[in-house]
């Protein structure tokens, strides 16, 4: 990875302000003790550690942050949030960063792209039926991530245990749920 210098000049970034607005978390409070990273169960698979993300938010490195896989690999287990000595809900910061990435249509790469595809697949089934549909969400994920037989073994085992239902479970007032999606979409576009 190229290590371009971080340039701090007069163009002050609003990244930490945007994060504050989204998550109500003040990232400037972070003093980089690293306890979030130390306790993060997924840190081993991340491209940037949680404390590096916090640091980059402070420095306004918006591109590095929003393009990192970390923000979507965070499982929102919130171990970081309950242990942070500065009382920062780091998991909420991560949440707001993935939302910001979604708003900017950043698809993510590699692992984070997969997370994004699954989330989208999940929401698509939700939008369709008012309830999520496990099988369809997994199928959509497999197709969109070009790995048709992904998790087939698990699917088969679940099927044998009677834990797979092909027929979707539809909310009667499914329009109410669709409306929620549409209103929010309009709100975002208007904004």
């Amino acid at each position: 990875m190229m290590q371009q210098p971080i340039v701090i000049d007069d163009r002050k970034s609003d990244l930490s302000k945007e994060v504050l607005l989204h998550s109500a978390q003040d990232s400037s409070l972070c003093f980089q003790c690293g306890k979030c990273t130390a306790g993060c169960p997924v840190a081993f698979a991340m491209d940037l550690t949680p404390n590096q993300i916090m640091r980059m938010v402070q420095l306004g490195l918006i591109d590095d942050v929003l393009n990192s896989q970390t923000i979507r690999l965070c499982a929102y287990c919130s171990t970081c949030s309950v242990r942070c000595p500065r009382n920062i809900a780091v998991a909420d910061v991560m949440d707001s960063l993935r939302i910001m990435a979604a708003e900017r249509n950043i698809p993510g790469t590699d692992r984070s792209r997969k997370v994004n595809i699954f989330n989208q697949a999940f929401l698509d089934t939700l939008n369709m039926f008012g309830r999520s549909h496990e099988v369809l969400a997994m199928l959509l994920f497999n197709l969109r991530s070009y790995q048709p037989f992904h998790n087939a073994k698990l699917g088969l085992k679940m099927f044998n245990n009677g834990k797979i239902k092909l027929k979707p479970d539809r909310v009667k007032a499914v329009n109410e749920v669709k409306e929620i999606f549409q209103r929010i979409n309009r709100l975002r576009k208007g904004a």
Binding site: Y76, I99, N119, F122, L126, G130, V171, I184
Partner: peptide, 22 residues
């Protein structure tokens, strides 16, 4: 009666308002 999905991780990772509304 006629409950709907809570939105789960997918919703709160995508849009805060969507997550709360669902």
């Amino acid at each position: 009666p006629d409950w709907s999905c809570c939105g789960s991780t997918a919703a709160h990772s995508t849009d805060h308002l969507l997550a709360v509304s669902l």
